[in-house]
Design a protein around this nucleic acid. Structure first.
Lengths: 179, 179
DNA sequence: TGTCTTCTTGAAATTGAATGGCGTTAGAAT
DNA sequence: ATTCTAACGCCATTCAATTTCAAGAAGACA
């Protein structure tokens, strides 16, 4: 797996007419020291930077993650309820997909080559060019069940991402939550 | 495939302590007369209702589609860039996935049972309960290419949903766009 | 049918993620 | 060192979506 240094980041930026700035270096470093498999929203990233004593303005954070997603350094994920998250996009990407618990928002990654292949097949069939391919599976996880969420969804219920926001009763906080 | 009448909708609502209102009946009817495979945003639905001479306030539209998604009558889709769309969730759902052009936002549906099966396999492996499963493939479509969008993305580029918003040059309008 | 309870509506205000404008700061090429 | 302009930070703005609240209506029951 390829890892950026300040120099390689600089040359990649410069090759497109962009500049290396302390902010960009810092933000990339946060992602590079993030435990593998974690992802951050712009807002979360902004908080982390503040806690580290290197505050960066929120608009710069937004601009930077978008730029890095554009460059292919970060991967943009749309998981639960209109929150975008970003994660390192390794040079030889082990493409992964996500399981999201609609109750506690916990996410779990998994890899599955045949999904990627199926996606590629669909794109070829349509004569398009594939850029990214993400399977998101919405589930209820065992922990959420244990903590008192409804034991099952109505049989006809196929998509229930809205449960959480429609049940104003206490939302169980899951300590290992990533979202 | 099961289809709601005013009566069956009423009993399903009442069984949960909710009420049948003209607004809810009208909104369901719009979805039921919508060509198969189409989906609407709350905003679009609101416009359609206005054009039909049966204006319903935007907040009611939002509340109703969320309620119907919760009941399993509608399926909530999160397609391009923070726009939620809704479609009828047929009783024997033909589960479909989406191709999204990152340039013109056009979406194309496709069905693929093996993706659903792969998803199910993953969920079983984790001991979870599957609620929904959606593959979203980000592409550049031939029309967008023809209209002058960049012919290719950088080789390292894995996720580029941000292109459109970062290229402030004219956005090609595609007439058959659904989004 | 009339009365009562409370769910629902509509209008307006509010939230919250994300973006844009603009004056200033600071990369990096010459 | 000078010059050009990308990038920053602050702040206002946008836009989807939600909430608030008084008025209205659905449904239950007598």
């Amino acid at each position: 797996m390829f890892s950026y240094t300040a120099d390689s980041l600089k040359s990649e930026l410069n090759s497109k007419g962009w500049r290396l700035t302390p902010q960009r270096e810092t933000i990339l470093q946060v992602f590079q020291t993030l435990p593998r498999g974690n992802h951050l929203s712009a807002e979360e990233l902004h908080d982390i930077l503040g806690q580290r004593g290197e505050p960066i303005s929120l608009s710069t954070v937004y601009r930077t993650v978008k730029l890095m997603a554009r460059m292919g350094i970060l991967r943009e994920l749309e998981l639960a309820e209109g929150h975008k998250h970003y994660e390192l996009n390794s040079a030889s990407p082990h493409h992964h997909h996500h399981l999201v618990c609609v109750q506690c928002n916990r996410t779990i990654e998994f890899e599955n080559d045949s999904i990627w292949k199926q996606g590629l097949k669909q794109v070829d069939r349509a004569g398009f060019q594939m850029i990214d391919c993400q399977l998101t599976i919405y589930t209820i996880c065992p922990e959420a069940l244990r903590m008192g969420w409804p034991a099952s969804v109505p049989s006809r219920w196929m998509c229930s991402r809205s449960i959480a926001s429609m049940e104003p009763t206490a939302t169980p906080e899951v300590s290992s939550s990533q979202v």
